[in-house]
Design a protein around this nucleic acid. Structure first.
Lengths: 206, 206
DNA sequence: GTCTAACTGGCACGTTGTGCCAAAAAGTCT
DNA sequence: AGACTTTTTGGCACAACGTGCCAGTTAGAC
């Protein structure tokens, strides 16, 4: 197993999250457009130059918040019992990763809803899911025998990632709370389930 | 039907494509990073200021080339016979839209492969598909009765769009030609077919 | 031809993001 | 502890980005 990250690395990750927090508050308040990178840096107690050592673009600053759920999802999927079919494992880990047990997770989820309203942050949202899709692809490949068709693995990763993305986008525009009916957990599980099970809509004739 | 676009609009669209062409050549040659917006403007015979009236970002300049196929796909789907199931209509229109009959289409397809190698253009690629997904969603909604679950429509649009994207990405990294075995037409049809038909991989147990 | 509306180019300007270098901090040895 | 190496940090300069503004030009309608 990989050893515990060194102190320096943990400090760096902590700083990264502090910046993300500050950026999210500013973006939510004034919008990403009207927020300068320097303001984010000041609010984080670092210099502008240092900010760009943590994030390559201004908008990227909130990526850690938007990506947290997806990373947890892939990790849970990779650790899930191997006697489960892929679809079952995906559905269960999705539901679990979308259940904010930790307070930090719930916070990230609420920020997601807030940040998704800003069209300027759409590209970060897309990029986060592209990364998530790639990680999921690797995780699915690990679960399958070596000879498995690479194209099918890619398709599976893309479809599952799209399901989660659609679920979160739907939750964001709806007024539903973070738990209970209409919650990300419910929507996410339903989306993964329906998409992997085959949509009834496919057979629809006008 | 909507009337024929006015001369001014057609001229504008033509200029837009000329800029896209020039940008694609420069991006392919030196990479998007090393190409300045001013160089694209000069190569297109327009001023820098005018360039930014056609495209909001430097990288956006190649969007028309990357989006051409997707636009054709949605149009073909919307016009396809309404007695076909959704999946059939999607698969057929995908295959047709990915068959470069026009020389302009074939060119756009070859540019796509070239431009996908540049990581700097990944965000444009994502944005183009996000737009395509939204248009496809509207087209699918038109084909379904008013009461149809909006979430399921979103899922269908997202899955189908992802299928095409994966097919093109796979084609880009493979050395396959634009027609024949391994072509976008074949890969696209296969991806849509498998994804809408249900992946065998979903039931895989390690 | 005249008038209106749209397109174009140049300029100024704040912001973005990076290369470079010296100072400070953290980690690693004896 | 102290001396050493490695990493992080901040300030500065700078090219490039993207936009507001205004004046000159062009296209289309009457």
């Amino acid at each position: 197993m990989t050893g515990r990250p060194t102190l320096t690395q943990r400090r760096r990750e902590s700083t990264r999250l502090e910046i993300a927090q500050a950026a999210a508050e500013l973006f939510a308040a004034r919008g990403a457009e009207a927020t300068t990178a320097e303001e984010i840096a000041n609010a984080s107690g670092i210099s502008l130059r240092t900010f760009y050592r943590y994030f390559s673009e201004k908008e990227d600053a909130v990526a850690p918040l938007l990506a947290a759920g997806g990373e947890r999802w892939v990790r849970l999927f990779a650790e899930s019992a191997s006697d489960l079919p892929v679809r079952e494992a995906l559905e269960r880990s999705a539901a679990e990763s979308l259940s904010p047990l930790d307070e930090r997770d719930g916070e990230a989820m609420r920020w997601t809803r807030e940040l998704l309203r800003d069209p300027r942050l759409a590209s970060v949202w897309q990029r986060v899911h592209a990364d998530s899709e790639e990680r999921l692809r690797a995780a699915i490949a690990d679960r399958c025998p070596p000879g498995t068709d690479a194209l099918e693995i890619r398709l599976a990763a893309a479809a599952a990632t799209a399901a989660i993305r659609v679920a979160l986008e739907q939750w964001a525009v709806s007024g539903a709370p973070a738990t209970g009916p209409g919650s990300p957990r419910e929507l996410g599980a339903r989306c993964v389930h329906e998409l992997t099970g085959g949509l009834g809509l496919w057979d629809h004739v006008d």
